[in-house]
Simulated scan of single mutants.
Amino acid sequence: MAKTRNYTKAERIRIQVLHEEGLSCRQIARRVRKSPAGVAALLQKLRQTSSVRDRRRTGRPRVTTARDDRILCRMSLRDRKKTAVKLHQEWTNGGAVTASVRTTCRRLLDHGLRSCKARKKPLIKPDQKRKRLAWAHRHKNGLKDSGTVCYGLTNPVSS
């Protein structure tokens, strides 16, 4: 597992200044409250590149721009109940953005937002439940006589 050594710009400059004062890696690490290995790696980068700035990262370039991400966030905030699929369709409709639904979800998560999942529809609606129960109460005596059982109600009626 790789170790992450993410330092802020202020921490990088402070480490550089402490190194120029003649402190060792361990002493610097204690003062900055970071690991000695991380400080050593930063100082090695300083020796190689004579700069403590972050190097350009390798990897796949982003499909969307910061502007596209802001547009997506505004769309999500406008209607909080939209699913990721609906947001994706609306976002990519113009043709400017060509991203997947998964990318849409990731961009929302990056900005602290969540896309909603479509709610599973109930097997029977509350209105239908009420009607079935009323029917069962009306036909309670008829069901007892015939010997059939009516399920799906709050109280099954049987003979």
Rank of each mutant, 00 (worst) to 15 (best):
A118C: 04
P126L: 04
M1F: 08
T92P: 00
E11I: 01
H19W: 11
G152I: 12
L123C: 09
C25S: 07
T92N: 03
I71H: 06
A10P: 00
R119M: 07
R106W: 03
R106Q: 07
C25A: 13
T104R: 01
K121D: 03
R119A: 13
E11W: 04
G152S: 07
P126C: 08
T83C: 03
N93G: 05
P36W: 08
R102M: 06
A2D: 10
R114E: 11
P61A: 05
S51V: 06
Y7A: 01
R70I: 00
A37M: 12
D79V: 10
I71A: 11
R56Y: 03
Q27H: 10
K131R: 15
K9G: 03
N6S: 12
A99L: 04
A10N: 08
C105E: 14
I124C: 13
R114I: 06
G59E: 03
K121I: 10
H88D: 01
R12W: 00
R78P: 07
T58W: 01
P126T: 05
T65I: 03
S51D: 14
C116V: 10
L87E: 02
R14N: 08
D110A: 04
G38A: 02
Y7R: 04
A66I: 00
I124D: 05
R119P: 00
S146P: 00
K140W: 11
R138H: 11
T64R: 04
D145Q: 15
R74W: 05
R119W: 05
T58C: 09
K140G: 07
A40M: 09
G94K: 03
Q48K: 12
L77W: 04
D69T: 02
A41R: 14
K82G: 03
G152Y: 07
R56Q: 14
A37I: 08
D127R: 14
W135G: 01
L18Q: 08
R30S: 13
S159W: 09
L109H: 08
T8M: 02
R14D: 11
S100Q: 01
T104Y: 02
K121W: 03
R70V: 02
D69E: 15
A134C: 11
K131V: 10
Q16P: 00
C73S: 09
H111S: 04
K129S: 06
A2M: 09
L72G: 05
R30Q: 13
A84V: 05
L23Y: 13
N141K: 15
C25N: 15
V85A: 13
G147M: 06
H19Y: 12
S51C: 12
V39M: 07
A118L: 08
K34T: 01
L133K: 13
T154S: 14
L113C: 03
R119V: 14
V52A: 06
V52L: 04
L23N: 12
G22L: 05
R80F: 02
G142T: 11
N6M: 09
G38H: 03
R70P: 01
V39A: 07
A37W: 11
R130V: 11
E11H: 05
R80W: 08
Q44R: 14
R119H: 07
R57I: 10
R31K: 14
T4A: 10
Q27F: 06
R78C: 06
